[in-house]
Design a protein around this nucleic acid. Structure first.
Length: 273
DNA sequence: CGACAATGAAAAA
DNA sequence: TTTTCCTTGTCGC
């Protein structure tokens, strides 16, 4: 579900579903996006883009001047299917369809028609995204390295770094044995470089597999002789949603707490202050 | 069938 | 810091 890797994968999948230049049927059965859908109807999808958890669908024959800005929030979902599209349920905010396939969007926090400058404004308020080739990790460290806020909260702040959600936050801190309550300014430049490089690798793998896997080969269920555990997020993890279960590495109890309005998970033995 | 939680973030207070 | 938006899968009755 929707952390940055999901959104980048959606950008790829939307682009792959519809050949450039093919006019699409654009509808909003649910109604909230009906006016904009009518404007876009019978125009082709030209480009897709993703930054953090924000998805942009550019419509038009040439350089898109208009974009559909989508943010899935906590509940948003996208489903792909082959033509003919089934009758839409009344929760479908946006349906794109052509002769071969359809894509339905449900429950997004944001689905709005925006201009090029408005799209740029979204980019401007987001931090570097490990999945974007133009991302500059030093920009994020400039804020982290001088902040008294905990590293766990900073990793969730999209202005600091874009695309990391609750799963990647918990997992990357575990993989680097960093206590989630450490202040950002106590994270060394070397530690940040390692965290960033790890996020780039983990999230790229997340896009490829369309799920979050963070467990190193030597700690997989097979390697450790335990049964595989596939959670709702689809992958194998060290600490996320494993509260009160034994740590895969030290056997200690995984702890949970509220941090930055979300459930934090960590191993207090492996991640010492 | 209702209650509730869920990987998010903006608005309101 | 709390409330609100919005949908769906799961759990308990």
């Amino acid at each position: 579900m929707p952390e940055g890797h999901t959104i980048h994968r959606l950008a790829e999948d939307y682009a792959a579903a519809f050949a450039a230049g093919t006019p699409l049927r654009v509808t909003s059965p649910q109604g909230k996006f009906a006016d904009a859908a009518a404007l876009l109807d019978r125009t082709p999808l030209h480009t897709t883009d993703a930054h953090g958890k924000h998805l942009f669908l550019g419509f038009g024959d040439a350089e898109p001047a208009e974009w559909v800005h989508i943010h899935l929030g906590l509940f948003g979902k996208v489903t792909f299917g082959p033509a003919p599209a089934p009758p839409p349920t009344d929760t479908v905010r946006l349906r794109l369809a052509d002769a071969t396939s359809y894509v339905d969007l449900r429950g997004p926090t944001t689905c709005a028609l925006i201009t090029d400058p408005e799209k740029q404004a979204v980019h401007d308020r987001l931090g570097p995204d490990p999945l974007r080739p133009d991302a500059d990790p030093a920009l994020a460290y400039r804020r982290i390295g001088r902040s008294r806020t905990t590293i766990a909260a900073l990793l969730m702040d999209q202005k600091v770094i874009a695309g990391v959600g609750n799963v990647y936050r918990a997992e990357v801190l575990f993989r680097h044995r960093i206590d989630p309550y450490r202040a950002g300014r106590d994270i060394t430049a070397a530690e940040w470089d390692a965290i960033w490089a790890d996020l780039v690798a983990l999230m790229r793998e997340g896009v490829r597999l369309n799920r979050i896997d963070t467990v190193r080969p030597e700690h997989t269920p097979e390697a450790m002789g335990r049964p595989p555990r596939v959670d709702d997020h689809g992958g194998e993890v060290y600490v996320y949603r494993r509260a009160h279960l034994p740590c895969h590495i030290c056997g200690g109890e995984i702890r949970t707490a509220d941090l930055a309005a979300r459930n934090l998970f960590w191993c207090p033995d492996c991640q010492r202050r």
